[in-house]
């Protein structure tokens, strides 16, 4: 006696064995399979025949996996495309760093401005730029997590801006503003790591495949 649910469960196992592990495409493929089975049965086929016909139209698991890999990986946090997961982890770090940075910088803005003549000081402009970089970091981080194309561009720009602000601490120290604490070097290292991850040859290959 043919058991449709068991047959679908076996088909799921075949897909899982082929590497389609992420829940999103598998759920979607199963939904499609069930609709096709229903359609075939409405046109007169028995359950077993409808199932066999439906899995043929779905295509082989290995070919599907290869296609999903070419599209930039399977969706979801458990997806096996490490570049997408790297981007998401990087995005989460940028969001966290952005908020942390913003909380410090908003306090500094009040300290460095105004100058005695009530005109914005150099320190104010530099801190304002840093606020811009932090905001861009938060926004870019969200875009990276969501996998939006603009995320890479925004984070690259924020990392370059962040790096370019690092040398400015020297004149700021000369003016005795003492804007940047020692952990600026950690942020500089983080900016460099980000740029390396986003522009490493392996990552570029992955983007080209998309």
């Amino acid at each position: 006696m043919f058991d449709l649910e068991k047959a679908i469960s076996d088909w799921r196992h075949q897909m899982l064995a082929a590497g389609i592990k992420s829940p999103v495409p598998l759920e979607e493929l199963e939904g499609h399979l069930r609709e096709e089975i229903e359609q075939q049965m409405q046109s007169g086929l028995a359950e077993a025949g409808a199932f066999r016909s439906a899995i043929q139209t779905m295509g082989q698991a290995s070919l599907l996996k290869a296609e999903f890999d070419q599209t930039g990986g399977l969706d979801g946090w458990s997806g096996n495309n490490r570049f997408i997961n790297t981007n998401r982890i990087l995005g989460a770090f940028w969001v966290a760093q952005g908020f942390w940075y913003l909380s410090d910088l908003s306090a500094l803005l009040g300290q460095v401005n105004p100058s005695p003549k009530n005109e914005p000081s150099w320190g104010f402009f530099i801190v304002a730029m840093a606020v811009g970089a932090a905001l861009a970091g938060v926004w870019g981080g969200v875009c990276l997590i969501r996998g939006t194309k603009s995320g890479r561009t925004i984070i690259s720009a924020a990392a370059i801006l962040g790096l370019s602000l690092c040398p400015l601490q020297i004149p700021l120290h000369l003016f005795n503003l003492n804007l940047f604490p020692a952990w600026i070097t950690i942020f500089a290292a983080f900016d460099l790591i980000t740029l390396w991850l986003l522009f490493s040859p392996k990552h570029r290959t992955s983007k080209a495949a998309q």
Partner: peptide, 12 residues
């Protein structure tokens, strides 16, 4: 179309 092949395209 091979039905399953639609989904990688949609995801891309």
């Amino acid at each position: 179309w091979t039905d399953g092949m639609l989904y990688p395209v949609l995801h891309r």
